[in-house]
Write a protein that binds this DNA or RNA. Structure first.
Lengths: 143, 143
DNA sequence: AATTAAAGGAAAACTATTATCAATAGATAG
DNA sequence: CTATCTATTGATAATAGTTTTCCTTTAATT
């Protein structure tokens, strides 16, 4: 992974810096879909000089070279995902967590849309909303 | 439509004001999925005293009573749609326009997700990205 | 090791949205 | 129809996420 991001950066003429590696490694090792501030806060202990602006600038580059996808799931900030293969996401309306939805074949649905629209499609994002298992439990057993 | 929004507002204890009716009527008569500023600008000639804050507050109420859905399609502002039945949207990455995708049955896909996730689902949003017919033409015949 | 241009960091700028609050205007009762 | 009451409006300030600026630092190359 680190080799991959190093190569990808160099190929596109971007420099390989400790900050960029740290940000990418952090993002590719979590399934939490953090936003910029969370990434910044979590890296702070290890990279005390890291700036929030650097997180934003790095995410823009990683998005541009296809190593990161940006999620807009109805919040006031963007979330980031290093797993760039297209997959749906679901957000818990109670606690706010965002999870992946894996192993779902939307192929038929996407094909139907592609053949019915006059747009030339290049991508898609599927967002689901609901209540996560933990919050379901809490609602049944209010402490 | 106007009767509907009037009734819906009164039933929920909201007052019926000219601003609210104007905003809802405007939104339900367009397929352009405008954001708050566009709504404000387009109503400005007819309602010169209309405030942008009123547009935001009205959208919040209309969303709450289920007369409007809010779209987050990767831009820096929210768009609004008075057609609340769930349907996918597509955004042109070239000119920025957002269109509806109608007559698509995502039922099978949604059912698959519902049965595979441990979330209790309450809704979803499907966003597609691509190039609209007009922009496709312009790319072939650059003026 | 020297050079060059890109990148980092701190802070300011920007922008969409929300909150504040005095003035206004629906809704209701009489 | 009029008075009363309270929600709403509109102008403005405040907020918050993101981007830009600009000077210093550093990665890459010779």
């Amino acid at each position: 992974m680190a080799i991959c991001v190093t190569t990808m950066l160099r190929e596109r003429g971007f420099k390989v810096t400790p900050q960029r590696l740290a940000i990418y490694n952090y993002l590719s090792s979590t399934k939490a879909h953090p936003n910029a501030e969370t990434i910044f806060n979590d890296l702070q202990p290890v990279y005390p000089t890291m700036s929030l602006a650097t997180v934003y600038k790095t995410m823009e580059i990683l998005r541009e070279i296809g190593l990161v996808q940006v999620l807009n799931i109805g919040e006031d900030s963007f979330r980031y995902d290093a797993f760039t293969e297209n997959h749906p996401h679901v957000r818990c309306m109670s606690c706010g967590r965002v999870d992946d939805i894996d192993d779902i074949k939307a192929g038929k649905f996407v094909d139907d849309v592609a053949s019915s629209t006059s747009y030339q499609l290049t991508g898609q994002q599927f967002y689901f909303f609901g209540v996560c298992p933990e919050c379901q439990k809490q609602r049944k057993n209010p402490s």
